[in-house]
Design a protein around this nucleic acid. Structure first.
Lengths: 348, 348
DNA sequence: ATGAAAGCGCTAACAA
DNA sequence: TTGTTAGCGCTTTCAT
């Protein structure tokens, strides 16, 4: 009977949640809720005595602040969203790893999602993410559907794009030029005196840009032909092996193969060894990414180095700057790349 | 003047945010806010005509629901938290990848954090995460500080632990026995007739369990000695190379080396080749994880296969079941492991 | 099938 | 330095 009365006495709208609230802490500490709020988010604004009282009360009650309520009240979620196509791809995982540290340091948490390799997936993700009202968003790539751009723009949220470069970023871009990669690798191959050229690639957008740029730069030099083995992704060792087989079937011999990732390159290496071809004598191989295993393949892989963790960190700093409303003079940051020459290509 | 009046007419407490709200949509559609709410979360409860009106209004206004407000009102955040020690470790990245798909499918988003390799980091992460009121939490490992367990328990949130096994999970555990791995590898080594044994390992908790179990199982068989090269993590190729060097310095020769990861194993392979040792003639190597590159090392790596993506998927399904309040009969799920024999160990 | 009222737990604005 | 008041934008409960 008493119990029922208590239940009925409860205000109409709601079932009570059992969690300790700020009001409870305030009662225990003998202060108002705003004072508890200040003890947490602006302790320097309170007298030492009050702060102490509140902290004791927090301790005693086991209070865990509710950031959902806080975010609603303040319109700041202290959440940043991060999207990469596929987290199981180590190059993206390392970027995210680099991104996380400064973000956490600044008191933000990460809402993570995979954007896949299609526009519709990215659109769905962005729509979902925006409904959480993140304070900032990290996006992979610079090509987004019109709908994506519209959503981002009307949300007026800071955005950093990574892994590519453009003069017209949504907001800020931190990456490198895939065109330049293609050209630089072509120049490298030309300087080394190769006469036959192959590409083993997955069909992802940025890989296609590198391939096209590589092809153009070779053509400009009158070099060729370029044998092409492009597969629907994702990359795997087997795909690399298949790639070299396809090139050889196509007439490729005694030349250099530029791969769209180190994993593919390792597959090419493996297939070459299995066929008894000498490396770099008969087949030379260039990878992309410089993943940690690249220096330890047999033979060690010549590849294009990208500093992924540092790109992630830089993106995080830029995003935090934008969130804080700080001036961000360079909206286009080129983090560059470098060819690392190892044993899978012949020396000049 | 008119403008100022409008500004002043605004209710006291708050600066207005510019975003379209549900109230705005309701006005445009000529219905109440609750009807808009239903159009989004329970469309079947509305008449076709009303639903259509509301959808038009949503379209016209470009309304993006505010899940922060929704979460506060409903006490359901539609957010699940996921923590792994280090996302740049591909084995964890692949687990997260497997975890994400069913979670997204069910309409949840992922709050992601790195728990590092220390209890204090995990505590800080869990405290931060709980303040977001996630509907469920994924945690790596089964050892958590008392404070962590207390926080989780008093939050009364569904939890799935992965990558290990215990009879006393916080809630549900999906993993495999590292003890069993150590024993199985020892049995494998014994059956293959090895007489000398080495371990190259990083000092992470679960790796230490495998090592200890491996050592015990060898001792039980009267086999030994066990040469040990354990390093503070994280694993790298160079560490693997250093590991084999250390073992050899310690007197190891003509035997098998069990590594705490495939990356380390690849380093051991590399160092052995560099020293002109034959594999598996003079040095045999067993890895752990069966990462994609393991089948393509030279020689191909014998290793312990863990199905990481499937572990992630299984964990997601269990967590969603718990969130939905469904019966979860098995709170301890053993996903097992298997030794994959390749060329880096001699055949019996 | 639809709506009115109440309130989730917190913080901004203003006052003292 | 501390408190009062008003609401952030949504969903619950209950009524019609």
């Amino acid at each position: 009977m008493t119990d029922e009365t208590l239940k009925d006495a409860r205000p109409a709208g709601r079932r009570g949640s059992e969690a300790v609230t700020m009001e409870e802490v305030a009662r225990v500490a003998g202060v108002s809720t705003i004072t508890v709020s200040r003890a947490i988010s602006a302790p320097h604004k309170l007298s030492a005595a009050t702060l102490d009282k509140v902290n004791r009360a927090i301790e005693r009650t086991g209070y865990v602040p509710n950031l959902v309520a806080g975010a609603l009240a303040s319109s700041r979620s202290r959440l940043v969203a991060a999207a990469v196509p596929l987290i199981s791809n180590p190059v993206y995982a390392e970027t995210i790893h680099g991104f996380i540290a400064p973000v956490k340091e600044a008191g933000y948490q990460v809402l993570f999602g995979e954007s896949g390799y299609t526009e519709s997936e990215e659109e769905a993700l962005i729509a979902a993410v925006l409904s959480r009202r993140p304070d900032g968003i990290l996006l992979t790539g610079v090509r987004h559907s019109a709908r994506c751009r519209r959503m981002l723009l009307s949300a007026a949220v800071p955005v950093v794009e990574i892994w590519d470069l453009t003069q017209t970023p949504v907001d800020v871009v931190v990456g490198f030029s895939h065109e330049a990669v293609g050209e630089t690798v072509a120049a490298f191959a030309a300087e080394h005196g190769y006469r036959a050229f192959g590409v083993v690639s997955v069909d992802d957008e940025r890989a296609m840009v590198r391939k096209a740029s590589f092809a153009r730069a070779l053509a400009r030099r009158g070099l060729g032909p370029l044998h092409d083995a492009t597969f629907p992704g994702p990359a795997s060792l087997q795909l690399g092996r298949d790639g070299l087989s396809a090139l050889i079937r196509d007439g490729f011999a005694d030349g250099v193969v530029f791969c769209s990732s180190d994993v593919l390159a390792q597959g090419v290496l493996t297939e070459a060894l299995a066929r008894g071809l000498t490396i770099p004598g008969q087949v030379s191989v260039i990878g992309f990414g410089d993943q940690s295993f690249a220096r330890a393949t047999f033979p060690a892989l010549t590849t294009v180095h990208i500093d992924r963790a540092s790109m992630g960190r830089c993106a995080a700093r830029k995003l935090l700057d934008r969130i804080r409303g700080a001036a961000v003079p360079d909206r286009v940051v080129d983090v560059g790349f470098a060819i690392v020459e190892r044993e899978s290509t012949r020396r000049r």
